[in-house]
Structure formats: C-alpha cells, structure tokens
Design a protein around this nucleic acid. Structure first.
Length: 567
RNA sequence: CGGGGUGUAGCUCAGUAUGGUUAGAGUACCUGGUUUGGGACCAGGGGGCCGAAGGUUCGAGUCCUUUCACCCCGACCA
C-alpha cells in the first residue's frame, strides 16, 4: 500500500475521553473511530489486525477439529424466552420488532441459536462429539461501555460450543480448548494466565478465564509465585496457613467491652491478633422474589468476598444492610456474634470451623465473649468459603505465595452441562436408544478486546508496538525526501520486491519531512521501518526496529535479503 | 440504574459569572514559496444553524424551560 493513497487518519491529539493506552493510540493512529457510546468504526488498519487475529483463531480451531459456522445476528426472541434468558439478560438484550410485529434480539451470545441449529440434526451418540464456532459481532447493551474496544456494546467475539455424550468427553474437550486458547494467545505474543473463575449462578462443573496481564485490566486475579495456580479473586482460595499466631488463653466468659465495635479496636482492646476475632458482615441478599438479611462470619483478619457470598447464599444479588434493618431484627451492630443467636441466616467461613480461643460479639450492647469455642456449632451451622484471599496467603496447590495482579479477560471457557439442551429440549439417542440431553461446553474469546489487549501490553509513549503476528503491515518503507530521485527509486524498488515476496508492506511516499514520517510510523507501530534517506549516497539505508527502537545501517544492495531475514 | 460533568471549526479547547461589532486560538486542510534526519517556516485561503427545540429580549454562544448526546464515579457485566 502506498501511504499517499491509504486511509489512515492519524492525529497528534487524542480524543478527550480516552484514558487507556490502547484507546488513545488506536484512535490517534487511525485504527478506530467512535460512532456512539460503545460503538466503533474499524478503519483499514484495524480491519487488517482483526483479520490477522481471526486467521490465527481459525487455524488453531481447525487443528482441534472445531468447525466454523455463522449464525444470524438477529435472533428470534422466542428462543430467549424458552431458555429463560430474556429476563436474566434484562436490558443488555437489545430487542426490537420487525414489520410483522415479531420480537427479535441482537445476539449477545449464541447458546440458544447453536442448540437450535443442531437440534434434530444431530440425533445420535455416533455423531458426537461436535464442536462448532463462529467469529461474529455481538451486541450487549451495556449500562456503561468504556475504555475503547475493551468494553464496547458492539464487539467481535469468537464463540464456540461443543456437544458431548458424556462428562468425561466434555472434560477432554475442555482441556483441548484450553490448550488451543493458550496457543492462540502465545502466538499473538501476549503475556497471559489461565485462572479459575467463578461459575456463578449458571452452575456447571467449572470455568476458566484467560487473562492477559495488564495494569489496566478490570479483573483482579491471585497468582502463585511458584506454580501455575491462578484464580480470579471471585473464586480464589488459599492454602493452609503456614504460621498461626499464638492463641490467647482465656476461659469462656462474657466480657465488658464498652464502645469496642471494630475489629481493630477489638484486637487492640484484648491485645490479640485479629485472627482470633470473629467478624460479622451483614448483607442484604436479593433472591428472585424476596430478600433477606444474612450474617456472614469470618476471621477478623479476612474480608468477605461478595461473589462467593452470593453463591453461598444462592442469591442473585448482594447489597449492604443498613443499621436500621439490623436493629429491626433485634441485632446489635458492632456486637453481633454467631453464638446463641438465630435472628438471621448465618453463613460461616470454613476457616472458623472448630475454631477455638475466639473473641466474638455477645449479641448484647458493649459485650463480647472471650475464649469462645466454635466447635459447638460446627455440626449445625452452615459453613462455606466466603473469604477473599489476601496477598501473601499460601497457594492451595503448592508451598508458594499468592499475590495480586490485574488482568483483561480475553477468554472464558465453560463446562455448561445440560442447562441449555434441557431448556430447549435438544436430545440425542444413546447406545440404548434412550433420549439424552446434550452435554455442552462453551468457549468464548473476545477478538476486538484482543486487539486492545495487544496494545495494552505493547506500547510506549510514542504509540503502538504491534507484534509480528498482529501487525497490520510488517514493513514500512520510509523515503525521507521524495524529491530525491535516487531515494524514491530505491524505495519503489524495495516496495516492489517485498510485494513480490508477499510481505505486507507500506511505502511512505508522502511529501513530508523526516521527523513527521518517523513519528507517524512509530504511532502506527510497524514492526520495521526501512529508512531510505541521506545515507543512501554512501550506499546505506537503515532499518528501524519498533520494538527496540534501534536503527541499524544496512548496505542498500543487501536490504531485501536483510529484511526477509528478520521478519 | 443512582451521583457528577461536558456539548462552540475535522481534532484539542478559549469565550458563557455581568447578553451588545462580522464568534476566536492552536492544530489539521487548500494555494504559493522557502526548507528536507525527529510532528519545519513565511504569506494567503476555505471551513461554524455555538447539540436540538421552545421561550425571555430591541438584541442570545451567553439568561430561562424542555430534550438529546457523550464522558466520569458507582451498581451491573454469559
């Protein structure tokens, strides 16, 4: 492509609302332009990058025997009613009516459509397993789209669905897909981590997220210093505590603790480690048709993990409980304990099972119990893992330590089970001729989000730094002064030669000065720029490598083979 | 969906408290000239229903009402 003919509107100025590097540079370098909240136009450079990523995805999917299809973007609302997701998705589903007054939705994901597609077409266990996927625009009417391509309402996603006759076969497929996804991210040149994820209300037997490591990521993940263990904080668990603080010695007793309400005050009052205190976090849990106050008890040194709390309570949503609501139930905020009290549902963290020598609220103003032994309630109370891991906790898989980092969720793979096949009555006949619902897996990967992720990980103050697998053009030939006939001729020659060798090449033949064209090349982020300039009279050109920002002098006669060698 | 903010040239923004020439700057764009190794310089030029609709006024970018859009914090996010 000749730069003089290319539609690449670069700009010195970033859009005023952009804060992320990927958003700023993709906009400045002429890749994307916003059309409305969470909606973007892809310009030629972005389109090329997207195609690169899609090609890699297609290659890796084909290796594991997944077949590409394309389902209609506009989907009948009827299907969403059948699966029950029309309510669950709520306003995120963009719905509208056609001229015949039939309701449709813009597809935010395609479980229903895919199940419908194979239903009554795949009818025998002999035809399983089956893995179908598509790469397609999705639409979710997000309440607050943000961060450029990172969280748009319209985005490109690769969504795959597999169908199996046994959970063992689903497990096998799940592992294969995880491996394929890892290969994709590795080829894209991304630093990532596969982490355990919250399975959420959907249930299923497990899900994993593929997280690209970046400070700008919206998810917090806990990773082990030694082994491969990593988990979203919503699902992270810690191993056995290595060092347990010395236990306070005290007979069970009710103790006057005037005005001592917080865990800090309590630990200081008794001069004990917060590990031996019981913290009560009161929340209001919202269910489909009702809500209730639930008391979550944890060790004083731990914090409640709200997603775990929602799961433990089987609720849809969690909200803060007000003091008034607690008092209305007869509870004493600041002094709530798990013993001799059943004014609200209790959920107790597993780390408190059979805990001894504890200090906890006595459910009476200005009183705490000391020397409490929780084993008395261990047979009757409901225990669940509801605490958030702390940085420095030990790893559940090895003797390493956990630390936090931020990640961008670029993939999510899920063992779905029979949720959708049952809801939509999609069945096959097993060896015994008995109808069985398909056992399903689902595998998502955000293509447009990957474009942004590459830049989040690969940029500097001057702009984008595309990896070789993602670059819109591999080589940029920059003719320093197009009025210099020798320079221009050398540029044209190399341009032609590289094109003949199928190298994706840009020829910057614009009537601009050296500095302007260099800044532009850096902003766009071509991996290599061949500078044909003032050194040409000495028989030399230079190769500028975007990644290292180094320039190397190369004999003009050898430039073709040099370039072919490094790319 | 709660709270806050912003809409003026392609882009980044002044101007709005206190209404008053023909609405500005930088950048980008067009012409000519100079320049040619890190976003050049000089001269000339084109480009605006001041988000939209009503209203107040002799007069509205500026005041009032309504509305729309976009952004930020939070809630939400298979």
């Amino acid at each position: 492509m000749r730069r003089s003919r290319a539609f690449i509107p670069t700009s010195k100025e970033a859009p005023s609302d952009a804060s992320l590097a990927s958003h700023i540079f993709l906009a400045r370098a002429g890749f994307i332009s916003q059309s409305a909240a969470g909606l973007y136009n892809y310009m030629p450079l972005a389109k090329r990058v997207i195609k690169k990523i899609e090609t890699i995805v297609n290659e890796e999917m084909s290796k594991v025997g997944a077949q590409e299809v394309e389902l209609s973007f506009v989907t009948p609302a009827e299907l969403w009613k059948k699966s029950g997701r029309i309510e669950k998705f709520g306003k995120e589903l963009l719905r509208f009516k056609d001229r015949k007054d039939n309701m449709f939705v813009l597809g935010p994901t395609h479980e229903e459509m895919m199940v419908e597609l194979i239903k009554n077409r795949v009818t025998s266990y002999k035809n399983l397993p089956l893995n179908l996927y598509q790469i397609k625009t999705k639409f979710r009417d997000e309440a607050r789209p943000r961060f450029g391509l990172m969280r748009g309402r319209e985005f490109i996603m690769k969504d795959g669905y597999s169908f199996h006759a046994s959970t063992e076969d689903l497990d096998r497929e799940f592992e294969e897909m995880e491996a394929a996804y890892k290969r994709i991210l590795t080829r894209l040149g991304l630093d990532y981590r596969v982490v355990e994820a919250d399975s959420g209300a959907i249930g299923g037997s497990g899900s994993k997220e593929l997280m690209v490591i970046a400070d700008s990521g919206e998810d917090t993940i806990a990773i082990c210093s030694k082994c491969e263990y990593g988990a979203n904080v919503e699902a992270a668990i810690s191993g056995e505590r290595k060092e347990v603080p010395e236990a306070p010695e005290a007979e069970f007793n009710k103790f006057s603790t005037p005005d001592v309400k917080s865990i800090e005050e309590l630990a200081a009052f008794f001069k004990i480690d917060a590990y031996y205190t019981v913290k009560c976090v009161a929340k209001k849990l919202v269910y489909e048709n009702e809500s209730e106050i639930v008391l979550f008890f944890l060790r004083g040194c731990d914090n409640l993990q709200e997603v775990k709390a929602v799961n433990a309570a089987g609720a849809l949503e969690i909200q803060d409980a007000s003091e008034e609501e607690l008092k209305a139930l007869g509870l004493v905020p600041g002094f709530i304990g798990p013993l001799d009290q059943d004014k609200a549902k209790h959920v107790i963290d597993t780390s408190l099972k059979n805990a001894k020598n504890m200090v906890c609220g006595a459910n009476e103003l200005d009183y705490h119990y000391v020397g409490a032994d929780l084993s008395v309630i261990s047979d009757v109370a409901y225990f669940a893992d509801i605490s958030e891991v702390n940085a420095g906790d030990s790893c559940p898989k090895c003797d390493g330590e956990l630390s936090f980092t931020k990640g961008i969720e670029v993939g999510h793979i899920f063992k779905l089970g029979t949720t959708y096949s049952e809801a939509l009555k999609a069945e096959y006949l097993d060896e015994n001729g008995k109808a069985q619902p398909f056992i399903m897996g689902t595998y998502g990967m955000g293509i447009s989000r990957l474009v942004a992720s590459v830049i989040e990980q690969h940029h500097d103050e001057n702009g984008c730094i595309w990896t070789k697998e993602t670059a819109p053009y591999m080589v940029n030939i920059m003719v320093s002064n197009i009025k210099d006939e020798a320079q221009m001729a050398a540029g044209e020659k190399l341009y032609k030669e590289l094109q003949e060798k199928n190298v994706e090449v840009m020829l910057d033949d614009r009537k601009e000065r050296f500095g302007f064209k260099m800044k532009d090349a850096e902003l766009i982020g071509f991996p290599y720029t061949v500078i044909i300039g003032k050194e040409l009279v000495n028989g030399n050109v230079q190769v500028y490598e975007r990644f290292t920002t180094e320039k190397t002098a190369v004999n003009a006669d050898e430039i073709l083979s040099y370039v072919m060698d490094i790319i």
